[in-house]
Every structure is written in C-alpha cells, then in structure tokens.
C-alpha cells in the first residue's frame, strides 16, 4: 500500500486539529473468544533442565508439526470475568476425534476481589478460592492491535513453571483480568505468548451483549479446596520431581 506522503505541514495540522482517536474506556459486557495455539515442541524447548542437545534434536525433528489449536472463552462485565474452554472446535471438524475436556474455569470478581478456579491437575480435581493474585508484570513500550483494540505490552517471567510470558493488554477495556491465570494489568489481556510460541492465546472475536446466567458459578462441584499458596506448593513439588526425573513438567498440568 502506497501512502500519501506526510509533510511536516500536514503533520502539524494533524497535531493541531485532529481529534484524538476516541479512546473512552468501554463498559464492555459480553463474550470474548480466544484462540489458543499450543506447540509442544516449543514448550519442550523451554524446559531448562533437559539437555540442550535433546531439546535441539526434538525441535529439529518436529519442526512445524507439533501444533494444535483450541478455543477458550471469557464472559466479561466491568466487575466480573469468567474464563473457560469454549464449545467450538478450532481444528477442522471432519477429522473428528473428540478429546475429553477437563473441567476448568477461572472466575474473578473485582468487587469482592475474589478468585475462584476449578481445574484438574495431575488427575485430581481442585477448587481454588483466594483473593486475586496478579503477576509481577513489567511494562514495555510496544503497541499493537489485537481484535480491534490497541494493546500495550507487558512481560512476566514465571520461574516456577519456567515460562516467559508476554502479554498484550487493551488500553480501553479497564478490567484487570485475562485468560488462564494471567491478570493484574491496567487493562484486559487480549493476547498472551508463553515461551515464544509454546502457547499463544489471542482474542479473535469480541461480542458485546447482555449477559444473563453466563457468569454464574457452576453447580457445587466436588474437588479438593485449596488456596493460592497451596496450589503453588503442589506445583513446585511436581516440578521438582520432574526435574529429578529429567522429564518435561507440563503433561497433566494446565500450561
């Protein structure tokens, strides 16, 4: 695309008269669909305790063939979000093998500052209830657009799960939430890249609509009740064991 050249003059005019792009903080209520792309060979490449040779060989042998895609969704109001696996299939349906979905949900209520999660880890179901714990994000200066929203870049390194997380949060959706366990930024997280493509979560569809029962908590589900701290220590124990066994830690644990 060839652009009209920008002269100093027109730039000056633009600065003077151009009304800034309307950037009102939206009172968003609706559903956001995220496309999640997993690449197990890239996940494997980030496991620092497995020998470099083994990781390089694995990446070389799998190339671009270790990807799979799923959809997740988030229901959002200015004060609440609920994130879970979506019904839609991201892989072509005609090839039809249907995997079982583990029960999974992350519910955050910003009025009561509570976080409620249901998930399966290592074959066991847990109910995590605690206050909202955001990550220690570093704010970077990059900008890009995701699903029609201009986003800023933030970075966090999870030393426990060996994940380098790059998140893009919307400046105009002032809800401090995001997909999976990611939250705590000044705007809603619309894209996350974990370990350079190991897992990429991108908002691909935003529907504004009045929500009815979508944010309701599921019926009492059975599972072990734990807190954030207990979850971290369970995870740490597992990663430490896998480190000793020199096996990747991510099978059986949501990435």
């Amino acid at each position: 695309m060839r652009l009209h050249p920008v002269s100093f003059f027109s730039l000056f005019f633009a600065l003077l008269f151009m009304a800034p792009a309307p950037g009102f903080a939206q009172e968003l209520e609706g559903r956001i669909r995220y496309l999640v792309t997993h690449d197990w060979s890239k996940k494997f490449a980030a496991v620092d305790y497995i020998s470099k040779q083994a990781r390089e060989r694995n990446a070389y042998m799998w190339g671009n063939r270790s990807e799979w895609k799923v959809y997740t969704e988030m229901f959002i109001t200015p004060t609440q979000t609920k994130y879970q696996d979506a019904e839609e299939k991201a892989e072509p349906e005609d090839e039809g093998y249907s995997w079982r979905k583990e029960e999974f949900m992350v519910q955050r209520n910003f009025e009561t500052q509570t976080n409620y999660e249901v998930f399966t880890m290592l074959g066991k179901k847990y109910l995590l209830q605690d206050s909202i714990h955001g990550q220690d994000w570093k704010i970077l200066n990059d900008m890009k657009e995701v699903a029609g929203h201009v986003c800023m870049n933030a970075f966090w390194e999870d030393t426990l799960k060996m994940q380098k997380v790059s998140a893009w949060f919307a400046l105009d959706i002032p809800v401090s939430s995001g997909p999976e366990r990611f939250c705590g930024l000044p705007g809603l997280i619309l894209e996350v890249d974990v370990n350079d493509g190991g897992m990429i979560i991108t908002a691909d569809k935003i529907e504004t609509r009045q929500l009815t029962s979508e944010l309701d908590l599921p019926k009492k589900s059975k599972g072990k009740k734990i807190t954030e701290a207990e979850f971290r220590s369970l995870l740490k124990k597992h990663v430490d064991e896998k480190r000793k066994a020199e096996e990747p830690p991510f099978w059986g644990v949501r990435y």
Partner: peptide, 15 residues
Amino acid sequence: PFATVMLLNPKDTTL
C-alpha cells in the same frame, strides 16, 4: 480523560 496512568519500579519497570 480515562488515560491509563501507572507507577513502575524504576529498576525493572515492574508494575
């Protein structure tokens, strides 16, 4: 109006 204002740690730009 409605600009995002942030305080970061000057050492590592942590929010």
